Simulated assay, not measured.
Amino acid sequence: MTMQSPENPEKMEQTPPYHVPVMLKACLDGLNIRRDGIYVDVTFGGGGHSRAILEQLDTGKLVVFDQDPDAFENAAELQDDPRFLFIQANFRFLKRYLKIHRIPLVDGILADLGVSSHQIDDASRGFSTRLDGPLDMRMNTDQDEFSAWEVVNEYSIEELQRVLGRYGEVHNAKTLATAIFASRHNAPIETGQALIAILKRFAPKFKEFKYYAQVFQAIRIEVNRELEALEDFLTQTQEVIKPGGRLVIMSYHSLEDRLVKNFIQKGDFQGEPRKDFYGNVLKPFEPVNRKPIEADDAEVASNPRSRSAKLRVAEKLPE
């Protein structure tokens, strides 16, 4: 899941909801839900999208994935629903777990790749650029030991430069990597705010918070291997979605959206279409919307984290 825009400081004292589902109606419309269908929400999070899908099912089934232990607890009241199955795992293992539960094909899959409000607003998780907490940023706090601390304190200058440049598109990645490397020789960089103190010296004027978010995004993607997981997941969707079924993906930054766009439109992550002998493009999906769907002004005003969301919908082609 992905870093969105920095939190609104005026709302920090309020108790936020676990997660406000972004573009809920557009996601449901994109899935084209049948009441007896089988659907998968691979990013349960706060469950807003999942609960809305369940409301539209009669004899159908909803399978959800989330590796975050907090998400499992948030789904507690749904566990007795016979239509509902929670799988506590990364969505890169989609096909494996569907096979374990004897679900060969599904009618639709939804993925909301954004970091949930709950994760951002919990300082102990380390995702926030405003709240002070440990350098963690793990999506799965139960199993994964590798965290943001290791990236910041143990990576070489070259490795830091790669992460910052590739995953955060930080323009002065080498300079910042060198500064981080030098700073930690005095003492380890333990918290997010300690890292921010270093970033302040290099952030562009009037764009400080965007810069902080780019750096945190880069580290978080590295910690959770997010782009690799996304590629694994997308590759498997072509094998488990029925012809005519829907793939609905919501992303929050250009790196993710580019992978999703290329996969849907070209059947290839690099945007180089595979073709048959006759020159026909070999791809598993057909885009339902040529351009990504974006939140309207009203939703952005009520939920600023929807500002950067891009929603793409595709339909599985016949074999």
Rank of each mutant, 00 (worst) to 15 (best):
S5K: 13
P6W: 05
N8I: 12
N8Y: 07
P17C: 06
P21G: 14
V22K: 02
M23R: 02
A26P: 00
L31M: 11
D41K: 07
V42S: 15
T43K: 08
G47Y: 12
H49M: 14
S50W: 06
A52H: 12
L54N: 07
L57A: 11
L57G: 07
D58S: 12
G60W: 02
L62A: 12
V64S: 10
Q67M: 09
D70M: 10
A76C: 09
F84I: 05
L85P: 02
F86K: 03
F93K: 13
H101K: 13
V106W: 03
S116C: 04
H118A: 05
Q119I: 12
Q119S: 14
D122K: 10
S128H: 06
F146W: 11
Y155K: 03
E159Y: 00
V163T: 07
R166V: 14
Y167N: 15
A173T: 11
K174N: 07
G192F: 10
L195Y: 00
F206Q: 14
F206H: 14
A218G: 10
R220H: 07
I221D: 04
R225M: 02
A229E: 14
L234D: 06
R246C: 12
K261P: 04
K266I: 03
G267T: 05
G271L: 11
K275P: 03
D276L: 10
F277Y: 09
F277E: 13
G279F: 04
V281Q: 10
V281N: 06
K283C: 02
E286T: 14
V288R: 02
N289W: 05
N289A: 07
K291G: 03
K291M: 03
E294I: 15
E299Q: 10
A301K: 14
N303D: 13
A309H: 01
K316W: 01
E319L: 12
